[in-house]
Design a protein around this nucleic acid. Structure first.
Lengths: 145, 145, 145, 145
DNA sequence: GTGGTCTAGACCACA
DNA sequence: GTGGTCTAGACCACT
C-alpha cells in the first residue's frame, strides 16, 4: 500500500497501525505542505486515482480531502481537481515530534521483540545512513545532467 | 490512575489520549521489556490486581495480557499467574541482519511519508537513547544511596 | 448451531466438546485456509452475522477474529469487514527447510511422548491427506453438475 | 519442558496447548501403559523429582498421580514411591486417534501458516523417516553388543 | 452497514 | 488465590 505521485509525494497506508486510513492521508498531506513537498497551487491526485493506487474505498479519500477543505487547507474546483490553498499549516514541533516518537517507538519495540537492543538498532541505522549517502550521491550526479 | 510495583514498574492510563486502555497497557509492557525493566520469567501484576489499581474492568487488563500472550511475549498459566515469556529467539547472524534490515527499511519508508529525513530520524533515535540512559542513571543513583 | 456460506464454508459449534467456542471458530478458519477453502483476500462472515448464525454472542466471534488478526492471519478494517490476510511469506528455500524441520521435530517429539511411532504418524498423515482429497473431489463433482 | 526417565519414558509439557499440565501428565502415563512402555510394578518418578524436571508446581504432579490412583491405575506406597498397578488400561483406538488427530491438526495448520502445503509436509516426513531409519540401525548395532 | 472498546457480572477450572 | 470463557448491552468510529 504505497504510491508515488509526480510531486515526489509518496503515500503509505498501514492497515495494522490502528490509525484510520483517512487520518493517515490527512496527516501525510499536512506534513508534505509543512515541509515544502507540496506548495500553494499544487494539484493533488484525484479522489478516484488515489483510491485505486492505495486500494481503498474512494469515500475514504473523499473524506480526507473534504476534511482538509473544511479546514481551508485544500480547495476543490468542480471539474478541474483539488489544489493546495494558500493557508499556512501551523504544525508545531510538538506535533511533529509526537508522530516521529510514535513511529520510532513502534519500530523499537518490534525490533526488541526479535532480541535487538536499542544500541544495536542505532548502530545499524548509522551504517544504513552511510550506505544511503553513497546512493544519494549517485542520484545527485544523475540529476545534475 | 497509576500504580507502582516493586520493580519500579509503574502503569499509568491516560483516558484523554484516545488510545484504548488495553493498548496503553500493552505499550507500557513492551517498553518495559525493551529497556530491561521487565525480564524473562518476571511475573506481571495479577489481572484483578492491576484492574483494581488502574480502576478499570478486569476484562480490559485480561485483553491486554491475552494479546501479548498470543504474540508470544507473555505466558499465562491458570492458577499461577502471568509471566514474561522466555522465548529464545534462535536466529543466526544472517537471518538477524536480514530481519533488522527489513524492519528498518519499512520504518524509514513510513517515516519518509510523513516528511522525516533519514538524518532527522537518526538524530531523534540518539535523543531517544539518551533519555533512556538518563532514566537509568537516576534510578541507579537512587538505588545506591 | 451450523451455518454455511457461499463458498462451501460451514461453521459448526459443538457445545459438548469442552473446546471454547472462540477456539472452535479459530480452528475451523485455520483448517479452511490450510486446505484452500479460504484464500488470500477472501472476506469472512461479519462478526454479527456469524454470531446470529451460530447463536452466540458477537463478542465471542470478535474474539476469535481478533486472535487471528493478532497472529497476522486475518485483517479487520472498521467499516468494511474482515479478510484473509495476504501476507506474503518471503523466505528463501534454506530458511523454509529449517522452519519445516524445526516444526516437524517438535511435532514428532511431542507425539512420541504419547507413544506414537514415526511410522504410525506418517501413515496417519497419509489418511489425513486422503480424507481431504475425497472431500475436494466430492465438491468438484457437486460443482460440475 | 521435557524430561527423560530411566524407563525410556519422556514427559513433555506444552504450556501453549491449553491442556492443563495435570491432564497432559495423566494422558502420557496412560498412553505409556497402554503401549507397554510402562508395565505392572514399574516405579514412577517421585512427585518432587518430576516437578523439578518439568519445572512445575509439585501439587500439579501430585494431582495427576492422585487422580490416576483413584482410578486404580497407580498405587502409592508411603515411603517407597508410586507404582503401576495391574489394572488394564482400556484406551480404545478412537481415543488414541483423537489425540493423534489433534496433534497432527495443530502441526499442519501451523506449517500451513508458513506457506507449506499438505503435500510438501507429507513428502518431508517421508524423507525424515528415511534419515531416521539410518540412525535407528546404528543404534540397533550399538544395542546388540 | 462494518468492526472496536469497555463494562458488569456470572461461572468454570487450575495451582 | 490465579486466569479463562461467555453473555448482555452500551457507546463509539469508520466506510
Amino acid at each position: 500500500m504505497e504510491t508515488e505521485s509526480k510531486n515526489f509525494l509518496a503515500f503509505t497506508l498501514d492497515p495494522k497501525s490502528g490509525v484510520p486510513f483517512y487520518k493517515q492521508i490527512i496527516l501525510q498531506i499536512e506534513m508534505a505542505i509543512a515541509d515544502g513537498r507540496l506548495n500553494c497551487g499544487d494539484q493533488l491526485p484525484t479522489v478516484r486515482g488515489l483510491a485505486v493506487d492505495l486500494q481503498i474505498n474512494p469515500n475514504t479519500v473523499a473524506r480526507a480531502y473534504s476534511e482538509l477543505e473544511i479546514r481551508g487547507i485544500l480547495l476543490s474546483q468542480q471539474g478541474s481537481g483539488t489544489f493546495i490553498s494558500d493557508k499556512k499549516i501551523k504544525l508545531n514541533e510538538i506535533e511533529r515530534e509526537r508522530i516521529l516518537a510514535e513511529l520510532t517507538r513502534t519500530f523499537i519495540t518490534k525490533a526488541a521483540s526479535y532480541g535487538f537492543t536499542l544500541n544495536e538498532i542505532i548502530n545499524y541505522m548509522g551504517e544504513f545512513e552511510n550506505e544511503t549517502e553513497k546512493g544519494d550521491k549517485e542520484n545527485d550526479t544523475n540529476d545534475k545532467k
